[in-house]
Design a binder for these strands. Sequence first.
DNA 1: GAAATAAGTTAGATCAGGCTAACTTTTGAT
DNA 2: ATCAAAAGTTAGCCTGATCTAACTTATTTC
Lengths: 149, 149
Amino acid sequence: MKLSSSMEDYLEAVGELCNQKGAARVKDIASKLNVTTPSVVSAIKNLKRKQLVEQERYGFVRLTRQGEKTARSIIRRHQVLYHFLINVLGLDYETASKDACRIEHAVSKQTLERLLAAADYIEQESRQGLNWSYEFQKYYADREDSERT
Amino acid sequence: MKLSSSMEDYLEAVGELCNQKGAARVKDIASKLNVTTPSVVSAIKNLKRKQLVEQERYGFVRLTRQGEKTARSIIRRHQVLYHFLINVLGLDYETASKDACRIEHAVSKQTLERLLAAADYIEQESRQGLNWSYEFQKYYADREDSERT
DNA sequence: GAAATAAGTTAGATCAGGCTAACTTTTGAT
DNA sequence: ATCAAAAGTTAGCCTGATCTAACTTATTTC
């Protein structure tokens, strides 16, 4: 039962709002995703049909058991990606955040696991004195400099 | 003048077909992208409007000057990503290919440049005896093993 | 507790991108 | 040169995701 990118975004937003406030309101989902409330309503209707979300009429939105599971994996995907972009590639938060939002819908399980492993591996290495990230940042900066000439 | 993912796919396909055969035929674009010819026709109409492509009625499709430039950058994006997935993360061709196709529409210029730099850096390191990829593959394999227990 | 405000919903439009079916033009075989 | 097959096109439909405008229900405030 695959979700579209868009539905993943909604489920992710519901998940995050539930995590931080216990339940999600339509208007908060809307403002988080920069869409209008009718868009949220129709998306929620869709997620209800898929049994990922529950909502009493005019009330709060909450995740079902299955919804929680799915949301968790979507959020994890985002997190892993974001972490990788920042801690391995050394991107700024702004760019990392935007790219993570878009790329997350496109990475396979396999790729994701390797991105995570790479970040972990590099972190482990750095505890042993071989600071990959630092060396790479230096390399990257130099290379950028030389391109500007 | 930003292109949708879908339009990027069409332009990329036209670019590749032109590279290998000098011009693209509607049916070849269709089979490359797994869509029907009417879909191609309407996409081409769109790319014509954007001046990225030319075509005499019932004839071949070719890139304009601007189209070539754009196609080149899209193709490069794909290539860089594919290379990274294989040579840095160690994914199999199949997965790398599929993921590259989907992720390419989502990576920013900044992320792309760093992915490229990371791949180059690692390659350079490996010429100096520090075989990152090899070590990482080992790390990854071990970690997968221990998860299976 | 009634009126005003906020939140949620419904109806209906639009747009992109895909499809099928039917048609036209081009190509190629005899 | 003709006519069958292949390639390209057009028309029209469908789905997903968005929007605005208008409406309904809940909440807040006096």
